[in-house]
Write a protein that binds this DNA or RNA. Structure first.
Length: 806
DNA sequence: AGCACGCCGACT
DNA sequence: GTCGGCGTGCTC
């Protein structure tokens, strides 16, 4: 029977990033447990905030006024001790607030909502009450959407104690309820009731017949009864009145896949390589060994089957399993594959779900109804108990790193949880990140390989097209001679083609042919991008939108035209080249709507189109047997970016798209158009040679002191004026230098490559280091020290092991 | 974050 | 003279 609780309050600032002590009032005795959410008064006024109970104890050591907890939000803890510890670890590792880290491990609907109301507590002039309260005795107080005069008067009333401010802490999480009916009587009783009915009471006869056919106390949704039996809700209500049945509200899950028909499938027979892998992991599951496996297998080598069978092994031991997949690879095909093996035991978590669906999947996991979780990055926080195995598919994917605070890497969280659960981890990829591959080399990870494709087919032939030469021949076209030729051949043979446009650094902008003027964003240092679908110019950084200019704003020339290569423009060119071909375009614009992505792919899979044109998103996991040609229109736009990982990214991307050709019986062909045909990333991708790429890239990283030889940390400051941001980063360097050894390398401060975004100026510093015991502590001090400036509009972010350097 | 307190300019 | 602007300190 604890009397006090330590609480992390929902006020995300550096100053309040610490547990606060609250007393537990007598009415709440024994109701409060660690991991529950509570509502507490916080601050001078009557402000109420939500908080998480992180500890309970008896003796108060805080000498100051201790307030009572106002109320509890949950009946049972929502954050278990594992996730509590995990959130603390993440807050530490990522320099984020504990409250932010706590909220992150829960579905977003469970975040508190705050509202203020003003309520009259004294008589006031009737006219005034009409004006301020619209006749009511209380009104929502929302200064954002209220007249300044009204706000003022309301505040005056509160000051004069004629009105009071009421703080409301809300909860968006809603459990969906469904009205069901429950037969309450036995067979004979219904028999009697029926004989007492009038002959022409058709509806009542139907209902009684139906009730009689059910077992007593079974629950049937009313909706279903209305549909299947053909009785009206009114009849059911009447039945309830007569005591024939009872109406019951029951909880239902919003199931995102309820309309998907899933046929159960059996395990596939394993190749000997797969067998070795499954056995190794199984052994670790059985012995409860916290071991990490790097499963490196070429596309089509059957990594997924290895995942599924290890999951099955975990389930056999009554353990659970977690499988992470990159968001874009989490297609219905993928989900179906897992669900068809494990049925209702599977919960799926990804960004395509509505908040309600996500919440319900989360509750199914939490209640142990789901034992297999498949999901994107944030699914790593699934409240699974007794985890037997954790899988990270496509472990090299940059999207596993969250690019907002808390900037955690799902792979790191997985390793933390595996330690906690004493279970193995499988990191799977055809093109592992250098970090992981290097760890496998050193024996930190156990290296499992699947070097052969299951169907025994050779990897597709890859042809490089030197666009420097081609440009001389074809001019401004996006399609080289050989690529056009191959597309034509596919159209004749009725085979399918996939074309990929490497979107990075690519977009259509508008330029004046007379003076070279490019339409800039007024808020950012970028040019606006043309969007055909909305007929506007948009900024991809701040969302600014304006009309398409007809004349050049600079020289008033009418010769203002599109440039560059957006998917829309390529699509237009394709249509002119192949007027008879059916083309599907897949990019951010065509897949924005929920489910659009799936529909497009289903269409292509059903051979309703000849050519699929898209951005990176088509590179992942698509499996279409009739695709025999894959074309990459611009292989190297990413290569020139000032990011040390650009070679690695290019190699991974090209290797992945290449894997899309010739998955089934037919032989595939890949054509890569490039301006750098001799670049090693492109050469090794052509030869499907990961190992050589790995060696070459490791030597580059070694020479240039980059990961995996060095750790990196990136500091970014942004401010409303450039000097302020630059000054802050200079100060930061001065502040950090004293604790850094001479082995640490400081890059910068430099302006970010797009220095101005949304009228804020960005400067950065990157520190490369091997071992700096005091660095993290010092960085935390830097954040505390900067509080005053943060209040004045400075934004300071610290990103440990950033994945994007631009 | 959001609230109270406190100190200076321009208004009923 | 007071109202209200925002700079500063604190929140169990």
């Amino acid at each position: 029977m604890s009397q006090y609780a330590k609480i992390i309050v929902d006020v995300p600032t550096m100053q309040t990033d610490q547990p606060y002590t609250y007393s537990i009032p007598a009415v709440l005795t024994n109701q409060i447990e660690i991991g529950m959410r509570v509502i507490v008064p916080f601050g001078n006024g009557k402000r109420l905030v939500q908080g998480f109970v992180i500890d309970l104890f008896d003796k108060n050591e805080f000498d100051g006024r201790v307030k009572d907890i106002q109320s509890v939000v949950d009946l049972r803890p929502v954050v278990n001790t594992e996730l509590l510890d995990l959130s603390e670890w993440i807050a530490n590792e990522t320099f984020s607030f504990r409250i932010t880290a706590l909220q992150m491990v829960l579905p977003s609907v469970m975040r508190a909502t705050y509202k203020k109301r003003v309520r009259l507590i004294d008589e006031i002039d009737e006219n005034l009450q009409d004006k301020l309260f619209q006749g009511q005795d209380s009104i929502d107080f929302d200064p954002e959407h209220m007249d300044a005069q009204i706000i003022k008067e309301l505040l005056q009333l509160t000051k004069a104690e004629k009105a009071e401010m009421i703080y409301e802490v809300g909860n968006k999480a809603k459990v969906k309820m469904q009205l069901s009916i429950q037969p309450k009587l036995g067979f004979e009783v219904y028999e009697n009731i029926r004989s007492g009915l009038r002959k022409n009471a058709k509806q009542q006869h139907l209902l009684v017949d139906y009730l009689q056919s059910l077992t007593e106390n079974s629950l049937i949704p009313q909706k279903q009864v209305v549909e299947e039996v053909g009785v009206t809700p009114a009849t059911i209500t009447a039945g309830a009145k007569n005591g024939w049945l009872e109406k019951v509200e029951t909880e239902v899950y919003r199931d995102p896949y309820k309309d998907t028909i899933i046929e159960p499938t059996d395990m596939q027979e394993l190749t000997s390589d797969q067998e070795v892998a499954v056995l190794a992991v199984d052994e670790a599951i059985k012995s409860g060994t916290n071991k990490t496996f790097l499963l490196q297998g070429v596309t089509g080598s059957g990594k997924t089957e290895v995942y599924l069978q290890t999951i099955a092994k975990a389930l056999e031991l009554r353990k659970t399993a977690l499988m992470l997949v990159p968001e874009i690879a989490l297609t219905p095909q993928m989900v179906k594959r897992v669900k068809s093996r494990f049925g209702d035991l599977v919960a799926v978590l990804h960004s395509g779900l509505s908040d309600g669906e996500r919440y319900d999947e989360w509750r199914r996991i939490e209640r142990k109804e789901a034992q297999v979780v498949v999901g994107a990055r944030s699914a790593v926080f699934a409240p699974l108990d007794n985890i037997g195995v954790i899988i990270v598919d496509e472990e090299h994917e940059a999207s596993y790193k969250q690019d907002e605070t808390p900037r955690y890497h799902a792979r790191d969280v997985v390793l933390w949880r595996s330690k906690r659960h004493q279970c193995p981890v499988i990191l799977g990829s055809a093109t592992p990140s250098l970090e992981s591959r290097a760890r496998a080399q050193k024996g930190v990870y156990e290296w499992l390989q699947l070097p052969h494709r299951i169907n025994g087919h050779p990897m597709p032939e890859v042809t490089l097209i030197d666009m420097r030469e081609e440009m001389k021949k074809t001019g401004e076209s996006n399609f080289s001679e050989p690529l056009r030729h191959e597309i034509t051949k596919r159209l004749e043979k009725k085979e399918q083609t996939v074309l990929m446009l490497n979107r990075r650094g690519f977009s259509s902008f508008v330029m004046c042919r007379d003076c070279g003027f490019v339409l800039p964003c007024p808020n950012c240092d970028t040019s606006l991008t043309l969007h055909m679908d909305t007929h506007t110019m948009k900024c991809h950084y701040c969302g600014h939108e304006e009309g398409i200019p007809k004349t050049c704003p600079n020289c008033h020339s009418r010769k203002i035209r599109y440039y560059g290569t957006g998917t829309q423009k390529v699509e237009e060119e394709l249509k002119t080249l192949y007027p008879e071909a059916k083309i599907l375009r897949m990019d951010v614009d065509t897949t924005r709507k929920k489910g659009a992505h799936e529909k497009l792919l289903a269409k292509f899979g059903a051979k309703e189109a000849d050519i699929l044109l898209g951005t990176q998103m088509i590179a992942k996991g698509l499996d279409f047997p009739d695709v025999t040609l894959v074309g990459v229109l611009n292989a190297d736009t990413a290569l020139s970016l000032p990011d040390f990982r650009s070679s690695e990214r290019t190699f991974q991307l090209l290797t992945q798209v290449s894997g899309r050709a010739g998955r089934a019986e037919k032989e595939g062909h890949v054509i890569i158009q490039t301006f750098n045909p001799d670049h090693y990333a492109i050469q090794y991708a052509k030869h499907h040679d990961y190992e050589s790429f790995y060696k070459k890239e490791m030597s580059v990283r070694h020479m240039e002191n980059y990961p995996p030889y060095y750790y990196t940390i990136q500091l970014t400051a942004s401010y409303t004026d450039e000097a302020g941001a630059a000054k802050k980063m200079l100060e930061a360097v001065q502040f950090l230098k004293p604790v850094l050894s001479k082995n640490a390398i400081i890059l910068g401060p430099t302006p970010k490559s797009i220095m101005r975004v949304n009228n804020r100026f960005y400067y950065q510093v990157v520190i490369k280091y091997k071992s700096e015991g005091q660095l993290k502590e010092r960085l935390r001090e830097l954040m505390t020290k900067s509080q005053a400036e943060v209040r004045k509009g400075l934004k300071l972010t610290i990103d440990s092991e950033p994945v994007n350097f631009i």
